[in-house]
Simulated scan of single mutants.
Amino acid sequence: MLKIGCHLSAAKGYAHMGKDALKIGANTFAFFTRNPRGGKAKAIDEKDARALREMLSEHNFGTLVAHAPYTLNPCSKDEKVRNFAYIAMSEDMERMEYTPGNYYNFHPGSHVGQGTEVGIERIADLLNRILTPEQSTIVLLETMAGKGSEIGGRFEELAAIIDRVERKEKLGVCMDTCHVSDAGYDIIGDLDGVLEEFDRIVGLDKLRAMHINDSQNPKGAKKDRHAKIGEGCLGLDTIVNVITHPRLKDLPFILETPNELEGYAAEIALLRKEADKREGR
């Protein structure tokens, strides 16, 4: 069964996220481990986390895709910013064990003038410091749009990070449809070719989750502006091609479109209907 959901707010607690997911027809979801703009994380209520775990099991949820704060930049030239990335991710690895066996996604960061090679080295260094053999969480590098000095706009950059990480078994990739198109990959006209290229450079075994977003901009724009499904340059057919592709359809799909819960519910229902139609159900 298609595992699809959206970003949900953790402000009211973990179990509340599970209830919101069920309300909108989701069977996976994403959430920020702390305020998306950074800062101190709220203490976890163990009873609340247990209630969510029970709900996930009872309703056969797919793997969750937690998200690091946007302010996290492990390859900044500012040491304080790099230290925040280390502290936040280290804490988040501990917090993720309250909901074990899930994913933790982060933006690789921006090298801000230091050069791609330095940025890659700094990101890999952080991962080598925070990944442990005991953790059940798989950390995901997100594909980026390639704007400015972002790392991760090319598959080769993700592969270079992974090559430098010792505990590769604790590392994967989350592909974002808006980002990967904005970065110049033709998922509209040649999705198979893009996936073959990813497999050759990174390995499809490393692709663990998808962010499914339409894009306000055409291929190669390098702007990263999400649009609602069917209202952007990718279009509904492209997104349905992604969620029904034989090499992708078992992954968790997370919507990050500009929506409230009602809008997410409509998109989830639409995509389930289109996927069923495509597969003759």
Rank of each mutant, 00 (worst) to 15 (best):
M1H: 13
M1Q: 13
K3R: 15
L8Y: 03
A11H: 14
H16Q: 15
H16N: 15
D20Y: 06
A21P: 07
A21C: 06
T33Y: 06
R34Y: 08
N35P: 05
R37E: 07
R37H: 08
A43D: 13
A49P: 03
A51Q: 13
R53K: 14
E54K: 10
E58V: 10
N60K: 11
L64A: 09
A66K: 07
A66T: 11
A68Y: 03
L72D: 12
S76T: 06
E79P: 08
K80W: 12
N83F: 14
N83A: 15
I87C: 14
M89F: 08
S90N: 11
E94M: 09
Y103K: 07
N105S: 09
H107R: 03
V112Q: 15
G113A: 02
T116L: 15
V118M: 13
V118F: 11
I120V: 13
A124G: 11
D125A: 14
D125G: 10
N128E: 15
L131A: 05
E134T: 12
E134I: 05
S136P: 12
T137R: 11
I138L: 14
V139F: 11
E142H: 03
G148D: 13
S149L: 10
I151V: 14
G152E: 06
G153R: 04
G153V: 05
R154D: 15
L158V: 04
I162T: 01
E169D: 15
K170E: 08
S181A: 12
D182M: 04
A183Q: 03
Y185Q: 06
D190W: 00
L191S: 01
G193E: 06
E196A: 10
E197K: 11
D199R: 06
D199I: 09
R200G: 07
L204M: 11
L207P: 00
M210H: 01
H211G: 00
D214A: 02
S215V: 01
Q216K: 15
Q216F: 10
N217G: 12
P218R: 00
P218F: 03
A221F: 03
L234G: 07
L234V: 05
G235H: 01
G235K: 06
D237C: 04
D237L: 08
N241T: 00
I243F: 02
P246L: 02
P246R: 01
P246I: 00
R247D: 07
L248P: 01
L248K: 01
D250V: 04
D250C: 09
L251P: 05
L255K: 00
L255G: 02
N259H: 06
E262T: 10
E262Y: 09
G263S: 01
I268L: 09
R272E: 10
E274Y: 02
A275G: 09
K277G: 05
K277A: 13
R278K: 12
R281W: 12
